[in-house]
Amino acid sequence: MKRRYLAVSAESNEPIQGKEVLDAVRNALTQLFGEYGASQAELALIRNNKQKHYFVLRCSRRALPMVRASTASLTEVNEKPAVIHVLRVSGTLKALRKKTVSAKLT
């Protein structure tokens, strides 16, 4: 199955853990697309890069538009006001790392 990796950053006044982001995106997916849609996404947290303030999520390629819409629809994470921005999307972790680093430098 083809997959996509998303580098996402959480913007909030309070510290946010990767697990909280994953749960929030999963809940948003279920709210917007139902259990059937959420099951297609196969969402997982791959990396929790606290130092660089971004997380890496993985989903199926087919469900990428649904995951992006769910991520954009979030206004809070674990009852803390927060916004999740998708920094980069890639097909491999290596390419994602390169893209994210170059985006952070520019």
């Binding site: 538009p65 992006r68 819409a69 991520t71 954009a72 629809s73 916004v83 921005h85 998708v86």
Partner: peptide, 9 residues
């Protein structure tokens, strides 16, 4: 949100 995120909505 980013333009791409609005577009995905």
């Amino acid at each position: 949100r980013k333009p791409q995120d609005f577009a995905s909505l």
